[in-house]
Write a protein that binds this DNA or RNA. Structure first.
Lengths: 143, 143
DNA sequence: ATGATATTGCAAATGATTTGCAAAGACATA
DNA sequence: TATGTCTTTGCAAATCATTTGCAATATCAT
């Protein structure tokens, strides 16, 4: 599936219907950015498409992840977070106090592969995750 | 809390009682190694201490994490995984097929801090996680 | 050995996520 | 534009990991 296609095109080209609910979910993720929990996505989508159901949110997020349109993050806060797969590879910094998740462009992986012998581990890497937890500037002075 | 102390000592020195259940949990993690889910820990512990309860497992894992004795991993498989905090800092490679989790000594973080200006992000790092997902040698030929 | 207090086991609650099923919607085709 | 097929939705109930309240029990300082 071409990375140039937008989410709506990917859905249609994969034989899925472009329902109002799916449009709304994609639109919310596109316009509101940052990774959101299913809960947050429900609230945001409800603003434009009232009556949408949790199972619809979950079913579609799963579909969108499967199609590579959406990325699922495993942040250490007990929830799944979702965001549109950006064109650029990146990782995240997470504030331990307010929970804000921000993208960083820094990726340790290439460097890693260059300097070390991952193949010695007899392991074929497919993807990788890198997260830095800490305190963001807004929370720095809070106790 | 001195890192030289063993888990049992840390518990006692922190004012917690060294119950049979806690001994059994620590012993299992010490002897059986690899990160385990609460479920797996229950099974393993049940072998030596039958009748132990899920809530006991969870309550103690939480305590042990709080005391720094146990490390909690957020692997992208929907479960929490627990292991004894080793002396050495490390990260993990996870097989997408069999789910096996192995430690790697490679850490991208120091390099990262040296080469980039994390402080420009106005973020104070506390900890970080790095996981590589892929296919392990045992699963390489499975379809 | 005793007593104060932490800890356990049990059962029920919680909270995110999933599922079955009938009704509604999307879209290719006429 | 109307029709029919097949997907998708909404709802409600089910799951599944994890948490919690509480009475009974175990630990450990004394």
């Amino acid at each position: 599936m071409n990375i140039r296609m937008n989410p709506e095109e990917v859905l249609k080209n994969s034989g899925y219907k472009l329902t109002q609910q799916r449009r709304a979910i994609i639109e919310v993720l596109r316009n509101s950015g940052g990774p959101y929990t299913a809960n947050e996505i429900l609230s945001l989508v409800s603003d434009k498409y009232s009556g949408i159901n949790f199972s619809t949110i979950y079913r579609n997020l799963e579909l969108l992840v499967r199609l590579g349109i959406v990325e699922k993050l495993n942040i250490a806060d007990g929830y799944c977070h979702f965001k549109l797969t950006g064109e650029n590879h990146h990782h995240h910094i997470i504030c331990n106090k307010c929970g804000e998740i921000r993208e960083i462009d820094i990726c340790p992986f290439d460097e890693l592969l260059r300097n070390t012998k991952l193949e010695d581990l007899d392991f074929e890497p497919v993807e990788h995750k890198f997260e830095i937890y800490g305190i963001c500037s807004k929370c720095k002075d809070k106790k």
